[in-house]
Protein backbone atom coordinates (compact mmCIF):
# COMPACT_ATOMS: atom_id res chain seq x y z
CA UNK A 1 0.00 0.00 0.00
CA UNK A 2 1.38 3.45 -0.88
CA UNK A 3 2.02 5.95 1.93
CA UNK A 4 -0.94 8.22 2.71
CA UNK A 5 1.44 11.05 3.62
CA UNK A 6 4.72 11.36 1.75
CA UNK A 7 6.95 14.37 2.49
CA UNK A 8 10.34 14.78 0.82
CA UNK A 9 12.91 17.53 1.38
CA UNK A 10 10.20 19.96 2.51
CA UNK A 11 11.22 23.55 3.14
CA UNK A 12 9.12 26.34 4.51
CA UNK A 13 10.29 29.90 4.95
CA UNK A 14 8.07 32.55 6.49
CA UNK A 15 8.97 36.07 5.56
CA UNK A 16 7.48 38.49 8.04
CA UNK A 17 8.63 41.92 7.04
CA UNK A 18 12.39 41.89 6.65
CA UNK A 19 13.06 38.78 8.73
CA UNK A 20 12.99 35.34 7.14
CA UNK A 21 12.17 32.40 9.39
CA UNK A 22 13.24 29.02 8.11
CA UNK A 23 10.62 26.95 9.89
CA UNK A 24 11.26 23.75 7.92
CA UNK A 25 14.68 22.90 6.49
CA UNK A 26 14.35 19.67 4.54
CA UNK A 27 11.80 17.43 6.20
CA UNK A 28 11.43 13.81 5.10
CA UNK A 29 8.45 12.06 6.58
CA UNK A 30 5.94 9.43 5.62
CA UNK A 31 2.86 7.83 7.15
CA UNK A 32 1.17 4.59 6.09
CA UNK A 33 -2.63 4.35 5.91
CA UNK A 34 -4.05 3.35 9.28
CA UNK A 35 -1.00 4.45 11.22
CA UNK A 36 -1.10 6.47 14.46
CA UNK A 37 2.07 8.59 14.53
CA UNK A 38 3.24 10.94 17.27
CA UNK A 39 5.43 13.94 16.46
CA UNK A 40 7.53 15.32 19.30
CA UNK A 41 10.12 18.05 19.55
CA UNK A 42 10.90 21.31 21.25
CA UNK A 43 8.81 24.38 20.82
CA UNK A 44 9.59 26.25 17.60
CA UNK A 45 11.03 23.19 15.88
CA UNK A 46 8.43 23.39 13.09
CA UNK A 47 5.90 20.75 14.13
CA UNK A 48 2.84 22.96 13.63
CA UNK A 49 4.21 24.32 10.37
CA UNK A 50 4.54 20.76 9.07
CA UNK A 51 0.88 20.14 10.00
CA UNK A 52 -0.28 23.34 8.39
CA UNK A 53 1.38 22.35 5.14
CA UNK A 54 0.11 18.77 5.16
CA UNK A 55 -3.34 20.07 6.02
CA UNK A 56 -3.33 22.65 3.24
CA UNK A 57 -3.49 25.72 5.45
CA UNK A 58 -0.34 27.12 3.87
CA UNK A 59 1.69 26.19 0.77
CA UNK A 60 5.18 24.65 0.99
CA UNK A 61 8.16 26.78 -0.08
CA UNK A 62 9.82 23.86 -1.78
CA UNK A 63 9.92 20.07 -1.69
CA UNK A 64 7.40 17.38 -2.35
CA UNK A 65 4.23 16.73 -0.32
CA UNK A 66 1.82 13.97 -1.32
CA UNK A 67 -1.40 13.47 0.62
CA UNK A 68 -3.67 10.59 -0.35
CA UNK A 69 -2.42 10.77 -3.93
CA UNK A 70 -2.57 14.56 -4.16
CA UNK A 71 0.51 16.64 -4.95
CA UNK A 72 0.23 19.63 -2.62
CA UNK A 73 2.99 21.66 -4.26
CA UNK A 74 0.85 22.05 -7.35
CA UNK A 75 -2.31 23.11 -5.53
CA UNK A 76 -3.82 26.56 -5.85
CA UNK A 77 -5.61 28.33 -3.02
CA UNK A 78 -8.86 26.73 -4.19
CA UNK A 79 -7.19 23.33 -4.34
CA UNK A 80 -6.01 23.66 -0.74
CA UNK A 81 -9.50 24.70 0.31
CA UNK A 82 -10.89 21.53 -1.28
CA UNK A 83 -8.19 19.48 0.45
CA UNK A 84 -9.16 20.88 3.87
CA UNK A 85 -12.77 20.16 3.07
CA UNK A 86 -12.37 16.53 2.09
CA UNK A 87 -9.04 15.04 3.05
CA UNK A 88 -8.01 16.30 6.47
CA UNK A 89 -9.53 16.89 9.86
CA UNK A 90 -7.84 19.26 12.31
CA UNK A 91 -7.87 19.05 16.10
CA UNK A 92 -6.19 21.93 17.91
CA UNK A 93 -4.82 22.45 21.38
CA UNK A 94 -7.37 25.19 22.05
CA UNK A 95 -10.30 23.15 20.69
CA UNK A 96 -11.29 25.95 18.31
CA UNK A 97 -15.01 25.32 18.34
CA UNK A 98 -17.20 28.07 16.94
CA UNK A 99 -18.51 29.76 20.10
CA UNK A 100 -21.79 30.91 18.59
CA UNK A 101 -22.90 27.37 17.68
CA UNK A 102 -23.81 24.33 19.77
CA UNK A 103 -21.70 21.19 19.61
CA UNK A 104 -24.10 19.77 17.06
CA UNK A 105 -23.96 23.07 15.15
CA UNK A 106 -20.18 22.83 14.99
CA UNK A 107 -20.42 19.36 13.51
CA UNK A 108 -23.19 20.35 11.11
CA UNK A 109 -21.31 23.33 9.77
CA UNK A 110 -18.29 21.15 8.96
CA UNK A 111 -20.62 18.80 7.08
CA UNK A 112 -22.33 21.78 5.44
CA UNK A 113 -19.04 23.24 4.22
CA UNK A 114 -17.83 19.90 2.89
CA UNK A 115 -21.08 19.11 1.12
CA UNK A 116 -21.51 15.65 2.74
CA UNK A 117 -20.45 13.73 -0.37
CA UNK A 118 -17.90 11.44 1.24
CA UNK A 119 -18.76 11.84 4.91
CA UNK A 120 -19.92 9.16 7.31
CA UNK A 121 -23.47 7.84 7.02
CA UNK A 122 -25.64 9.14 9.89
CA UNK A 123 -25.75 5.80 11.74
CA UNK A 124 -22.00 5.31 11.39
CA UNK A 125 -21.40 8.81 12.71
CA UNK A 126 -23.83 8.23 15.57
CA UNK A 127 -21.58 5.32 16.53
CA UNK A 128 -18.56 7.62 16.60
CA UNK A 129 -20.46 10.15 18.73
CA UNK A 130 -21.36 7.33 21.12
CA UNK A 131 -17.75 6.19 21.22
CA UNK A 132 -16.71 9.76 22.06
CA UNK A 133 -19.34 9.84 24.81
CA UNK A 134 -20.82 13.21 23.85
CA UNK A 135 -24.37 12.24 22.81
CA UNK A 136 -25.88 14.16 25.69
CA UNK A 137 -23.72 17.26 25.31
CA UNK A 138 -24.18 18.21 21.68
CA UNK A 139 -26.97 20.71 22.22
CA UNK A 140 -24.74 22.80 24.50
CA UNK A 141 -22.62 25.72 23.44
CA UNK A 142 -18.84 25.30 23.84
CA UNK A 143 -18.85 27.74 26.76
CA UNK A 144 -21.10 25.33 28.65
CA UNK A 145 -18.80 22.33 28.17
CA UNK A 146 -15.68 21.18 29.97
CA UNK A 147 -12.38 21.20 28.11
CA UNK A 148 -12.49 17.44 27.67
CA UNK A 149 -15.99 17.63 26.21
CA UNK A 150 -15.03 20.44 23.88
CA UNK A 151 -12.07 18.47 22.60
CA UNK A 152 -14.22 15.39 22.02
CA UNK A 153 -16.72 17.51 20.05
CA UNK A 154 -13.76 18.91 18.08
CA UNK A 155 -12.67 15.35 17.28
CA UNK A 156 -16.18 14.46 16.14
CA UNK A 157 -16.21 17.58 13.96
CA UNK A 158 -12.81 16.68 12.49
CA UNK A 159 -14.04 13.18 11.62
CA UNK A 160 -17.51 13.91 10.27
CA UNK A 161 -16.35 14.21 6.66
CA UNK A 162 -14.35 10.97 6.91
CA UNK A 163 -10.91 12.51 6.33
CA UNK A 164 -7.97 10.55 5.05
CA UNK A 165 -5.85 11.93 7.87
CA UNK A 166 -6.65 13.34 11.30
CA UNK A 167 -4.09 15.99 12.28
CA UNK A 168 -4.08 16.69 16.02
CA UNK A 169 -1.81 19.53 17.22
CA UNK A 170 -1.23 19.00 20.96
CA UNK A 171 -4.81 17.84 21.49
CA UNK A 172 -4.23 17.28 25.21
CA UNK A 173 -2.15 20.42 25.82
CA UNK A 174 -5.04 22.16 27.54
CA UNK A 175 -6.47 19.17 29.41
CA UNK A 176 -5.90 17.73 32.87
CA UNK A 177 -4.48 14.22 33.21
CA UNK A 178 -7.82 12.43 33.43
CA UNK A 179 -9.24 14.18 30.39
CA UNK A 180 -5.93 13.78 28.51
CA UNK A 181 -6.00 10.05 29.08
CA UNK A 182 -9.62 9.84 27.98
CA UNK A 183 -8.95 11.77 24.76
CA UNK A 184 -5.81 9.75 23.98
CA UNK A 185 -7.69 6.52 24.63
CA UNK A 186 -10.39 7.70 22.23
CA UNK A 187 -7.86 8.53 19.51
CA UNK A 188 -6.37 5.07 19.97
CA UNK A 189 -9.86 3.53 19.71
CA UNK A 190 -10.76 5.52 16.61
CA UNK A 191 -7.54 4.44 15.01
CA UNK A 192 -8.16 0.78 15.85
CA UNK A 193 -11.86 0.56 15.09
CA UNK A 194 -12.12 2.84 12.07
CA UNK A 195 -8.59 2.43 10.78
CA UNK A 196 -8.38 6.23 10.98
CA UNK A 197 -4.90 7.52 10.13
CA UNK A 198 -3.83 9.93 12.88
CA UNK A 199 -0.81 12.19 13.20
CA UNK A 200 -0.53 13.84 16.60
CA UNK A 201 1.85 16.49 17.86
CA UNK A 202 2.58 16.23 21.57
CA UNK A 203 5.00 17.44 24.20
CA UNK A 204 4.18 14.60 26.49
CA UNK A 205 6.13 11.32 26.15
CA UNK A 206 3.32 9.46 27.90
CA UNK A 207 0.88 10.70 25.29
CA UNK A 208 3.24 9.56 22.57
CA UNK A 209 3.02 6.04 24.05
CA UNK A 210 -0.49 5.74 22.61
CA UNK A 211 0.88 6.03 19.06
CA UNK A 212 2.42 3.23 17.01
CA UNK A 213 5.63 5.19 16.61
CA UNK A 214 7.12 8.59 17.41
CA UNK A 215 9.19 10.91 15.22
CA UNK A 216 11.34 13.71 16.64
CA UNK A 217 11.63 17.16 15.17
CA UNK A 218 14.43 19.60 15.85
CA UNK A 219 15.37 22.84 14.05
CA UNK A 220 13.01 22.25 11.17
CA UNK A 221 14.16 18.68 10.48
CA UNK A 222 13.09 15.18 11.48
CA UNK A 223 15.52 13.12 13.51
CA UNK A 224 14.51 9.46 13.58
Amino acid sequence: MPAIIQVENLHKTYSTGRVEVHALRGVDFSVEPGEFVAVMGPSGSGKSTLFHIIGGLTPPSSGRVMLDGLDLASLTDGGRTALRKNKVGFVFQKFNLLPSLSGQGNIDIARDISGTKNGYKPDQFAEIVRLLGIEGRLHHRPAEMSGGEQQRVAIARALVNHPAVLLADEPTGNLDTANSDAVLKLLEDLNKRLGQTIVMITHNPEAAQFAHRTVLMRDGKIHG
Binding site: T81, R84, L98, A110, S114
Partner: peptide, 16 residues
Protein backbone atom coordinates in the same frame (compact mmCIF):
# COMPACT_ATOMS: atom_id res chain seq x y z
CA UNK B 1 -10.35 36.47 13.22
CA UNK B 2 -10.42 33.19 15.08
CA UNK B 3 -13.84 32.10 13.84
CA UNK B 4 -12.87 32.88 10.28
CA UNK B 5 -9.68 30.85 10.74
CA UNK B 6 -11.73 27.92 12.07
CA UNK B 7 -14.13 28.04 9.13
CA UNK B 8 -11.18 28.09 6.76
CA UNK B 9 -9.57 25.13 8.51
CA UNK B 10 -12.85 23.27 7.94
CA UNK B 11 -12.55 23.99 4.22
CA UNK B 12 -14.63 27.16 4.03
CA UNK B 13 -13.70 28.94 0.79
CA UNK B 14 -13.18 32.67 0.36
CA UNK B 15 -16.59 32.92 -1.24
CA UNK B 16 -18.14 31.07 1.69
Amino acid sequence: TREIGILKSLGGSSVY
